[in-house]
Design a protein around this nucleic acid. Sequence first.
DNA 1: AACGCTTATTAAATCGTTTCAATTCTGCTC
DNA 2: GAGCAGAATTGAAACGATTTAATAAGCGTT
Lengths: 351, 351
Amino acid sequence: MAHKVVNRSTPGILKCMALAQVRDVAKLAGVSPATVSNALNHPERVSASTRQRIQEAIDELGYVRNDAARQLRAGSNRAVGMILLDVGNPFFAEVARGAENQLTTSHRPLLLSNSNQDAEREAAQLGLFEEQRLAGVLVTPVGNVLHRLRRLKERGTAVVIVDRKTGADEFSSVSVDDKLGGRLAVDHLLERGRQHIAMVGGPQNLRQIKHRLQGAQQRVQQSDSATLTFHETPTTDVAAGRLATLDILAKPRSTRPDAIFAANDLIALGVLQELVRAGVSVPDDIALIGYDNIQFSASATTPITSIRQPAEEMGSRAAELLCDVIDKPGAPVQHTVFQPEIVVRESTTGA
Amino acid sequence: MAHKVVNRSTPGILKCMALAQVRDVAKLAGVSPATVSNALNHPERVSASTRQRIQEAIDELGYVRNDAARQLRAGSNRAVGMILLDVGNPFFAEVARGAENQLTTSHRPLLLSNSNQDAEREAAQLGLFEEQRLAGVLVTPVGNVLHRLRRLKERGTAVVIVDRKTGADEFSSVSVDDKLGGRLAVDHLLERGRQHIAMVGGPQNLRQIKHRLQGAQQRVQQSDSATLTFHETPTTDVAAGRLATLDILAKPRSTRPDAIFAANDLIALGVLQELVRAGVSVPDDIALIGYDNIQFSASATTPITSIRQPAEEMGSRAAELLCDVIDKPGAPVQHTVFQPEIVVRESTTGA
DNA sequence: AACGCTTATTAAATCGTTTCAATTCTGCTC
DNA sequence: GAGCAGAATTGAAACGATTTAATAAGCGTT
């Protein structure tokens, strides 16, 4: 009898089990590819007995679905991507954890990546996400990416902004009132009798930091004696805090601040390290307050007062909003704004 | 004149620019889809003038390649995946950073995810990676996933094990000599005159921790007076360290250890917190040594002596090995074993 | 045994890109 | 201007899954 010639290198199983596909599974189970697909994606459509036979064939062959093909046909991808400003910062790690937990309950894989606060990297990552036709993206914008985000949205990818409220109501967002945070910090310092505050913080093009500074300035202006200076740092890590502190300590003693407000806790830790090394007493000589309330600020040489942001909750809420956007495309955009809280520790109060 | 009927909703640009594809670009640029593809993937095959025309069409339409289709046809994916034990642990974050930097130079996107030391999550992540036919995977195994990794390898996905040398020479790996690390830690404590050491550490099924314990035990056995007890914790975070410490402090004072060896720095920080809170002097009453030398251990209440692992280097080396495996499939497996070093700080020496 | 009616299964079309082989075009030599 | 090499371009066939609409099978009723 004549056989149709099969164009694959047919010895199949023997040759190289690298490429088992639905049709192999189907053949082994004695059904059609369509049935295999149904068994996988709509189990209720296929009888229990064939389902089992198919499962056995799958196990036997070690079949793993080719996601590219699936996606191409399905036209969509369940996964969502998240671009972090900096994985090395425990604050963002915690936000990511919150998002991940939430997404896991929605059975959506999360792809993490980080921009390192580099607009170019961010753009590259967005490009990847775009090419992958992800269901959604969680992003803390660093560069000028609004047009990219718009394009993503037009393409049907949901977008939620994390840790920053965009002016326009284009995207749902999760954020924290950074101006309030800045005010809280300064308020606390003034209450403790400090008058000359130095704020140390990463590049001003980071919205969050700019707002914290603005809040701080507002509060300072309400007092007629207090002063605020801003020491801009190129990055937001421990090293930045150390360098800035060296600068501050190099000044004549008379112009030294009596309090330092660090734009985040990593910077605060750096500041603390150099103050300790220079023999400056915290808080007696200089009080120190950080931002983010990462867990390490509580166990620092001198436990650091900090402005708490509900990191994990922010992540999970962002993920929740994202799922909303994905699942109900018509729904209005939503903004969740969290309130920062001050967590007072020794670095501003003394032992 | 008669037109062939196009099956797409043709108003195209007007209707919804969501779906510009090669054929739209081709039409606008007055060439065939094949040429567009060539312009994108093999620019040298297409003349400068058409290349430019195509580029203009792409910009005009906002065309973004559909990666699923590309992959399906190409059969491969440049991206590599990495499964971290815990993003919240700065050590792993730093390893990831190293890998990411290295991979960026090879123009390979990195997909991060974390298993949270949960075998089930790990398996799920591996499943995703498998379905995506990634070029390679960097993984620190937690569950029993050797068979999955083998399958990945058979399928053509490169695998490199991070932070653990598998017995068999199946996969290239990057690791640190954890037994030596354990010995170094105990050695240092004994040298400082400590005799009764308590090791506090996460689940023993984590290879790294088991090895650190073994190394510690070996060293203790070389002394006839020293003792070592092991306090197993279910996790490897700050909270675990705190809980274990409460247990230790609950014991009668006479049986208290005079030194604690924490299996990592997060645990060490937790231990330190509870010791401080209980008024136990570090290192006078109890010396403390951690592991990983994360940057926060240097700025703790009492700076913590720690065993340094070259995190970033490990990540970049792992990525390098992975690229080797991907690019030269025939090459032999390679193992890079880093040596840990002790970084001495106050927590074992006094001020 | 013919009839509806539900349930299981399948053949064939499709997703959007890349690639191969074939074709057209270009410029150049003799 | 015929002949030709090489470059530029293209039509049509993949890639591997899913889906739709159609077919087959089962099953109780009359």
